[in-house]
Simulated assay, not measured.
Amino acid sequence: MSTFIALLRAVNVGGTGKLLMSDLKALCEDAGFEKVRTYIASGNVVFHSGRSAAQVKALLEAGLQAHCGKPVGVLVRTSAEMAAVLAANPFPAAKPNRVMAIFLDATPPANALAAITGQNGEEIALGRREFYVHYGEGMASSRLKIRAAEAGTARNMNTVARLVDMAEAL
């Protein structure tokens, strides 16, 4: 059994993609995942499974499609991969609520940083399958556009740390 962390995209944000975390937990349990725990209403779930990450992603996306009536993107990491994301934070001195990891399914393209628009003081770095963004002045007034991250989902370092702790506790 491996410990996985699944991050749902565009769930319970700005009034879109409404999904109760109790429904997400039940959906995961129905898929055969064990020791399922959710964290905050933005679609974070930690669990054990004997399946591969690709199988976990496919099962979750199919279940969410059936439940929500529309596609819901899911990004999956093992507990070790999520711990590595936390450890690789290139902005460790910054406030953790102002540093986001934008999770992707694949490695960002080589020209990803050159294609960014609207940057105004934000610091950006590439990870293995994520972008790191330090919003020094906060996200509210940011006009940052990262085209290569449009299919991704973001979590701040406080959330990443909490998910790592939850995974380690399973």
Score class of each variant (00 low, 15 high):
125 A>I: 00
51 R>G: 01
129 R>Y: 00
120 N>Y: 10
19 L>T: 09
21 M>C: 03
119 Q>C: 05
42 S>Y: 01
46 V>T: 11
57 K>C: 03
28 C>Q: 12
9 R>L: 01
15 G>N: 08
97 N>P: 05
74 V>L: 10
145 K>F: 12
97 N>Q: 13
165 D>V: 09
95 K>I: 00
90 P>F: 01
118 G>D: 14
123 E>R: 14
122 E>T: 03
113 L>S: 10
3 T>E: 02
102 I>T: 07
26 A>E: 09
11 V>H: 09
137 E>M: 10
90 P>D: 00
13 V>Q: 07
74 V>Q: 01
103 F>N: 05
49 S>Y: 07
104 L>R: 07
96 P>I: 05
112 A>S: 15
22 S>R: 15
115 A>P: 02
72 V>G: 02
147 R>N: 10
84 A>K: 13
99 V>M: 09
144 L>Y: 01
165 D>P: 10
29 E>G: 11
144 L>P: 04
26 A>G: 05
121 G>W: 04
82 M>G: 03
25 K>E: 04
76 V>A: 04
5 I>M: 07
51 R>F: 06
155 R>P: 02
38 T>A: 06
61 E>T: 05
106 A>H: 15
7 L>T: 04
141 S>G: 15
40 I>W: 15
49 S>E: 04
12 N>Q: 09
162 R>K: 15
68 C>D: 03
72 V>R: 05
51 R>C: 01
128 R>G: 06
10 A>W: 07
59 L>E: 04
58 A>I: 03
44 N>L: 10
137 E>Y: 11
59 L>R: 13
124 I>H: 01
44 N>Q: 11
119 Q>E: 06
122 E>L: 07
13 V>I: 14
3 T>V: 15
37 R>E: 11
